[in-house]
């Protein structure tokens, strides 16, 4: 079932890439890429399991560490950007939640610096 999920996503990604160039991917290729992605996971897991020495949760830092091994600079820069993006999203979410929780409280907070 997991493989099916991976296969499905790989298929969609391939289709998207194929649309741009008007070149179709044969089903064999999609299956092969899915299988390779699977293999990729095995290596990633090893590194991640290795990376967390005293914790039992894999963090973004560990993923970044794993990414560093591959495609040295480009990848790490790219992943860096992505993780920053993620962090920003998180902050946005937090802000949104805060807004949901206490709009009035926030309003008073905004007012205070204005009045003072």
């Amino acid at each position: 079932r997991l493989k099916a999920a991976v296969h499905y996503t790989v298929g969609r990604l391939c289709q998207k890439v194929g649309e741009k160039q008007r070149r179709e991917f044969s089903r064999q290729v999609v299956a092969a890429i899915a299988e390779t992605t699977f293999r990729q996971c095995i290596f990633a897991k090893d590194l991640e399991a290795f990376a967390h020495a005293k914790r039992s949760t894999v963090s973004t830092e560990d993923v970044k560490l794993a990414a560093r091994r591959s495609t040295a600079l480009f990848q790490s820069v790219y992943i860096q950007n992505k993780s920053e993006e993620l962090a920003q999203e998180k902050e946005l979410k937090k802000k949104r939640e805060q807004r949901h929780r206490g709009q009035q409280r926030l309003r008073t907070c905004h007012r205070k610096p204005g009045t003072s």
Partner: peptide, 16 residues
Amino acid sequence: KTKLSGDAALLMAEML
């Protein structure tokens, strides 16, 4: 016991 944090999963998804 090993778990994956949410952000790590997202990052991993991006890598894949």
